[in-house]
């Protein structure tokens, strides 16, 4: 595709820190290459702001190739913008028209408070992981090779699909209830499907769900928005599996 240049109007959420109120600010940015990624466009905007001696916009990013889950941004009313199955770093400016107005906002959730501008605190996800998203392995020198345990191919595939979750939080951001069920469902599922994970399955699901609730995420109402917006195509099947695991655990736990 031949590269093109477009001019855009940007409406960006600016907020000094967690304790101040923020507001939407408008910026004009000219000659944006349609080949650039969305984050490169943000870099270009920040250069412009720095040249104008204004404070650049804070936003999260790290790998810039869709694997770390750091980049967030609610773009024109959708998590990670108008493209499907991509992170913001994989979104390209060719998705936008010349003269377009683009709204850029942080993830909105009580559990993801804004730290500055577009950066939110996603440590709630870390605490959910710490509550049970692991397997306990004896590392005293006689660890069993994981490949020595036979696992049905179908289960291994499903566990792998669940493990593709990068913890980006798009599911929470796009859910009308700010529910984290897709994320937690994926994390519970990736272990529940494997023999190594079955050992701690009961406590895992109970503890992770309790932590999820304590963090202030909402309740799932199965609208399916998360599945549509998830950059890794995590399926609602994982939420159903967690619901089954939770039911089993609720009935049998002591």
């Amino acid at each position: 595709m031949a590269s093109k240049y477009i001019n855009v109007n940007l409406k960006v959420w600016r907020q000094k820190n967690a304790n101040t109120k923020g507001k939407m600010e408008t910026y004009k940015l000219d000659t944006v290459s349609t080949d650039s990624s969305f984050l490169e466009m943000m870099d270009q905007l920040n250069e412009q702001l720095i040249n104008e001696r204004q404070e650049p916009i804070a936003f999260d990013h790290d790998c810039r190739e869709g694997i770390c889950g750091m980049c967030s941004l609610y773009i024109n009313g959708r998590a990670h913008g108008p493209d499907n199955a991509v992170t913001t770093c994989q979104l390209h400016m060719r998705k936008f028209d010349d003269g377009a107005t683009i709204y850029i906002e942080p993830w909105r959730s009580k559990a993801f408070p804004v730290i500055k501008d577009l950066v939110v605190d996603r440590s709630a996800f870390d605490r959910i992981q710490q509550a049970g998203g692991f397997v306990s392995v004896n590392t005293s020198g006689n660890t069993i090779d994981a490949n020595a345990t036979p696992i049905p191919k179908a289960d291994a595939d499903k566990a792998f699909e669940a493990a593709a979750c990068i913890g980006c939080g798009a599911c929470v951001a796009s859910c009308k209830n700010s529910s984290a069920m897709l994320f937690v469902g994926a994390k519970v599922s990736q272990y529940a499907l494997l023999p190594q994970g079955k050992v701690e399955a009961t406590n895992r699901v109970l503890n992770m769900v309790r932590q999820m609730e304590e963090e202030g995420f909402g309740n799932c109402t199965n609208t399916g928005a998360c599945e549509v917006e998830c950059p890794k195509g995590i399926s609602l099947e994982n939420i159903a599996r967690m619901n089954r695991e939770f039911m089993k655990a609720m009935i049998t736990a002591e």
Binding site: G77, K176, G216, V228
Partner: peptide
Amino acid sequence: QNKKARPIGYAHNSPNANSK
């Protein structure tokens, strides 16, 4: 509870893109 989970809403939201 679900309303409380998002105290500040989006200035621009397109929920029809992902749900009914």
